[in-house]
Write a protein that binds this DNA or RNA. Structure first.
Length: 561
RNA sequence: UGCCCCAUAGUGUAAUUGGCAACACGUCUGACUCUGGAUCAGAAGACUUCAGGUUCGACCCCUGAUGGGGCAGCCA
């Protein structure tokens, strides 16, 4: 590893993590921005944040942290028709939860509207912007095509005085929506569409969630974004690939203004298999009730993952694992699942829970006793707890098979299996109902095989989990599967038709050991042999615990719970 | 059709011109185990999209081709 020599008072040493770090290293070396590093995350408050945003947040905040620079949270709230305070609130919560420290700098593009207006006036005075009377259709018609240049607007050569007057009257509200725009005067023949006299301001008579009705003209993204970055002293303005073609315009505006000029860098957005990642589609899933809400545990939103039981550490680690590059890719969901399993394995309290109970009677056992169970084998300091054992138990339906396939080493007729933390039992009798369904098992236990007694010389292949019937806590457990049946639903014409009809299974009569009683919303557990589960924040009540399955345990046998 | 960007194992990334192309996930073995988890040991899997060129030497530089992505909102 080569150390980066940095004479800065904030020395930074690291191996470049990705191409953006290389660019920044170079900029520090040449002192393009002095030796400062200042990034930002600029969401539009028109939806909830998703895991793709998490990637961007981790990238931007990570850079600020690694270079001992600053990181801003800034709302790009330039379109009053789509934005809402609810989204602002959720975004602030999600960014904080992820642990990206913006040092209380919650900034808003709308706070810069006055300054942007002044700069627009400057551009008009420099002859670089003009008021255009063409309507939307006319502008589209004169913009040209992929192969043909556009045509100059008939209003392109208005005098500075006329432009100034018209622009002021636009602001005053003298014109209807869409009647006039302010356009940059660049080049209608440019091969880059963004340079064909792009629109800087449009008339929109709408109430802004923060500015109320003080404005009826709103800046477009291209005009506003560089201004915002410049005003905040951002050094590296990191965005996704689709803005690559906009960079010449970003540069043109800032150069024309002659103001501080940050560097825009683009990277590939995250695509995750078996889900969709565009806000438009996520909004549609919510609006059309294909899911519960933005925080439905099946949603790839940050709030969805939080509710499902993901931790910020796991998501941050995931962002680290997938890296950053410029080629568009489809990341396999298994990388995300690894990140959360890795975290929860080390940190989650273990507990025994039976999802589909099958009653077991230990015919030669009387009374009740308390057994000792380890809370987390990966974390000895977590200690142990007590688990009640008695004559009547529940085991998992799938842990018994009357006619087992080869390799099945759980309970079978006349077979033995260990009850975890308890005794080895033997299946003596299988009881069925009229339809032939197994409804109860009669077993005997071997009192010399008690866990931890050291007395057992007996070895069995299988260990299964169980819950004492009298002491069991009833709970609802919600099992989630991928939301879509195809790897890349976003690429499908009929993507809604690819929704997995079995993405949610609700189990209403799960049995859990009594330790679970005091669980609070968002508490995370490993249900032994089944997976990781998290107390739901929405459906859990004082009377009933509801769990979301975060992710299953890895399983080399192939059971399906 | 015009412009811009990209191209490395199944997946995501690395290798800033050189001894067998690395890491993580996933997959497969084996060991261990009172979680078919974890852990440990190991394996398979890439002629670095193709074709030329520069060079003693190219994943890396150049040219072309092919493939993929983006752009014709008064969205961001």
């Amino acid at each position: 590893m080569e150390e980066i020599k940095n004479t800065n008072e904030n020395p930074v040493e690291h191996k470049p993590k990705n191409f953006i770090y290389e660019i920044i290293d170079e900029d520090i070396k040449t002192e393009k921005f002095g030796k400062q590093v200042h990034t930002r995350f600029p969401p539009e408050p028109n939806g909830y944040l998703h895991i793709g945003h998490a990637k961007s947040i981790c990238l931007n905040y990570g850079i600020a942290r690694d270079y001992k620079g600053k990181f801003n949270l800034r709302f790009d709230d330039t379109n009053p028709e789509k934005e809402e305070q609810e989204y602002v609130d959720s975004i602030v919560e999600d960014v904080k939860w992820l642990g990206a420290d913006f040092e209380e700098r919650i900034l808003y593009a709308s706070d810069y509207f006055e300054q942007m207006y002044k700069w627009a006036v400057e551009l008009i005075k420099k002859g670089k912007a003009y008021v255009c009377d063409l309507n939307a259709d006319e502008i589209r018609a004169t913009r040209g095509t992929l192969t043909e240049p556009g045509k100059d607007s008939p209003y392109r050569n208005r005098t500075v005085e006329e432009n100034l007057d018209l622009f002021e009257r636009m602001r005053k509200g003298e014109f209807e929506n869409g009647a006039k725009t302010l356009r940059a005067k660049i080049d209608m023949a440019s091969p880059n569409f963004n340079m064909r006299d792009p629109i800087m301001y449009r008339v929109v008579h709408a109430e802004h969630h923060r500015q109320g009705n003080s404005w009826c003209i709103y800046p477009t993204y291209d005009w506003a974004h560089g201004n915002e970055d410049s005003l905040e002293g951002i050094t590296h303005s990191i965005c996704t690939l689709e803005f690559e073609n906009h960079r010449p315009l970003y540069d043109w505006f800032l150069d024309s203004l002659g103001v501080y000029h940050p560097k825009q860098i683009e990277f590939a957005r995250l695509n995750l298999s078996y889900t969709v990642m565009s806000k438009r589609r996520l909004l549609q899933l919510v609006k059309e009730k294909h899911v519960d809400d933005w925080d439905d545990p099946r949603m790839p939103t940050i709030s969805g993952y939080r509710r499902r039981g993901y931790t910020p550490e796991a998501i941050r680690n995931f962002a680290e694992i997938i890296g950053v590059a410029k080629r568009d890719a489809l990341t396999d969901i298994s990388l995300l699942e690894f990140a959360i399993r890795d975290d929860l394995n080390k940190n989650a309290q273990r507990v025994m829970a039976v999802l589909r109970p099958l009653k077991v009677v230990i015919t030669n056992y009387e009374g009740e006793e308390n057994l000792d169970a380890v809370n987390n084998p990966e974390k000895p300091e977590a200690g142990s707890r007590t688990v009640p054992f008695s004559k009547e138990l529940f085991i998992e339906e799938s842990d018994f098979m009357e006619d087992p396939p080869k390799g099945f080493h759980r309970l079978v007729p006349a077979g033995e299996v260990r009850l975890r933390y308890a005794y080895i039992i033997k299946c003596e009798e299988v009881i069925k109902d009229a339809t032939g369904k197994v409804i109860e098992l009669h077993c005997t236990y071997d009192k010399d095989t008690k866990s931890g007694s050291g007395a057992s010389t007996k070895k069995v292949k299988g260990v299964i989990h169980w819950v004492s019937a009298n002491n069991a806590v009833d709970a609802e457990v919600r099992l989630y599967d991928r939301l879509f049946t195809v790897e890349n639903p976003g690429a499908e014409e009929d993507w809604l038709g690819k929704i997995n009809p079995n993405s949610l299974e609700v189990i209403s009569d799960a049995k859990i050991e009594p330790f679970i009683k005091n669980a609070k919303p968002l508490d995370k557990f490993q249900f032994e042999r089944l997976g990781y589960f998290c107390v739901d924040t929405k459906y859990t009540t004082a009377e009933k615990l509801v769990f979301n399955r975060t992710v299953t345990l890895k399983d080399s046998w192939g059971k399906k719970s």
